[in-house]
Design a protein around this nucleic acid. Sequence first.
DNA 1: ATTATTCGGAACCAATCGGTACACAAAGGA
DNA 2: TCCTTTGTGTACCGATTGGTTCCGAATAAT
Lengths: 193, 193
Amino acid sequence: MARPRTFDTDEAVEKAMQVFWTHGYEGASLPDLLEGMGLTRGSLYKAFTDKKTLFLKVLDHYEGKAVRAGVDLLTDPGIPNGAERIMAMFTNSYRAVTEGDQRGCLLCTAAAGPSTYDDEIAEAVSRGLGAMRDGIDVALQASPKHADLKPSARRALADMLVAQYMGLRTMARARIDTETLRNAVRSVGVMLA
Amino acid sequence: MARPRTFDTDEAVEKAMQVFWTHGYEGASLPDLLEGMGLTRGSLYKAFTDKKTLFLKVLDHYEGKAVRAGVDLLTDPGIPNGAERIMAMFTNSYRAVTEGDQRGCLLCTAAAGPSTYDDEIAEAVSRGLGAMRDGIDVALQASPKHADLKPSARRALADMLVAQYMGLRTMARARIDTETLRNAVRSVGVMLA
DNA sequence: ATTATTCGGAACCAATCGGTACACAAAGGA
DNA sequence: TCCTTTGTGTACCGATTGGTTCCGAATAAT
């Protein structure tokens, strides 16, 4: 009954995510997005309403992909010791940098940027970080050294580790030297050991 | 021999800092800055060359003021236990939020933003964070529990604490609930105790 | 008083911003 | 086949961006 889309919406969101991830929300211009997504203004606005709505979709996508991957790792029973799962998460972040990815974490970049003045973005960021916190909490329950912490204390430790994660990834984005990042990760390991 | 400035440069930089602190580098428009600083385009460009140069000046000013205050606290012999100094720094950050200041840390915002693509800004951010790290390192030397760590391990712990600080302040900027921030600070206290 | 010099202010600039309007293309239902 | 509906592409929009130019005003040295 009507002309079908010639592009895949999910693919387009995925590509938009790459653009936002690199340039940040405000730093990504419409032309940047159009080129990265491989479509024209008409299509973008028809399918995604406007830039902010697209960004919210991208944040959802990021949660369902990057955050989800992290949570999967944090809850992976294949690694019996939960502290090791947490360390794997931090080590992965470090390795991303050494392998050339200095974009940090999209959620963290959004936290420092548009979530300051936009409630919906702030809410999405908060949701994503909350998911990470819960994942860490589950991992801590599987850590011999932390399993019998009081739930409130364990949860507080998880909050601290989320902050640690954010700081680490923000430092990566600022191109802080890898030695410093390595040190920070190492110290987290000492703390959890 | 020539007409003198009718405004004080340091005062102008201080006011510019407030604007950048609130809106971030890219988010602060020229009109924002002009209004906040109380001068016109002609004066601003005559005195500060351009927006980026002004921002670098602002970062210097921030280092000489906010960062310096933090380092002073971290090295304050009036608090004999260095771990307590560090906790005072984190507690101050938390209190800033409860008192209504959700702007976070200018350095951290710059880290997530323009330092990604501008080398000079990245360098200034790195320098400021390095100063904090050194301050924390000094504090750790004055902590009975950490004084006899190997210097490399102590330094690594300081790096971790800087990341923790960045994460905490970035979360504050994203308006994460104060309970979470409180938890994170509390856990840092447990770790250092 | 004259002059050299810099300041402050406003007009102005091209470029870019996010977003809209509209004509055309494509597809399925009648 | 025609018509309705929706996607696509392009031209266009006003607003805003950071930055420049230029002129009158102010000041200090001569």
